[in-house]
Design a protein around this nucleic acid. Structure first.
Lengths: 146, 146
DNA sequence: TATTGTTATACTCTATAACTATA
DNA sequence: TATAGTTATAGAGTATAACAATA
């Protein structure tokens, strides 16, 4: 076995390098954590979400969401509203400042993603797209088995 | 922009799930950290390495290597020898217990990697292989630019 | 003066679980 | 009794830099 060709190692190295290059946009320039960035991006797409829905959409657990949301709220980027249909829930909504911040970050993040994908032709992108989904399904299966 | 299809997000989620499912082998059963596992695997391939070489081969920095090596040494899995040609260096070598431990873990780790890759046909694997390399090269380019 | 490797420190993340409130 | 969300806590991992030994 060779570490350099071991798929889990290669994915870890790639994900870390890609994360570094993207977090340069949201973390270094706008002081957002990765979790905060995920919440912001998800709420920009889905204007209202419950905390549990946000967790599911961002692959974060409920305390990660709770902390990221508290921090975004403290910065005036989002608000938490009560859910009258079930008062245990809280509805998350971006405030105008949050939407504005996302609109500033989004094009830079997309430009970096586009730069990465320029390395691949259309067919390679299509295969990669499928392969990532299939690998994730298998990895989840292994996770469940332990 | 949709988080679910954003490549950096997808890579992070996949790498994390894959890492979880592989670390179940070396961490849960053999109490190795990810860094220790990388050092062990690298030394199993390359019987003698300097600390800096080990760092380069594992994508770890010098303190991560220093700490992982100290821990492996404390467990009697490897030894550090002086390098007479340049006495600032230390030569890392697995001890028999380290090689034996790696031989126990390796087949399980490879079985899990194989299970993941069974999701893909030969052509998909070949494309994935190339795509990961190309994406890494681009990500490194972005990292350098900042 | 530069490099190898170790150690110190503070900081961030993560994981577990206890807790409040609602259902 | 179960669920949504918050908070507390301890442990692990990370980043920076200071440091000793050698070149």
């Amino acid at each position: 076995m060779e570490l350099q060709t071991f798929l889990p190692y290669r994915l870890a190295v790639l994900a870390s390098a890609v994360s570094q290059s993207i977090s340069a946009v949201y973390a270094d320039r706008f002081a957002l954590s990765r979790d905060e960035w995920r919440i912001l991006a998800t709420l920009a797409e889905n204007p209202e979400m419950k905390t549990t829905e946000a967790a599911a959409h961002t692959t974060l657990d409920k305390m990660q969401v709770s902390r990221a949301v508290a921090s975004l709220e403290a910065r005036g980027l989002l608000e938490r509203e009560p859910d009258e249909s079930d008062r245990r829930n809280r509805i998350l909504k971006l405030l105008p400042a949050g939407r504005a911040l996302f609109r500033r970050i989004e094009p830079m993040a997309e430009a970096r993603e586009a730069f990465l994908l320029e390395a691949l032709d259309d067919e390679e992108r299509a295969v990669l797209d499928r392969a990532l989904d299939k690998l994730l399904a298998r990895a989840r299966q292994l996770e469940r088995q332990g």
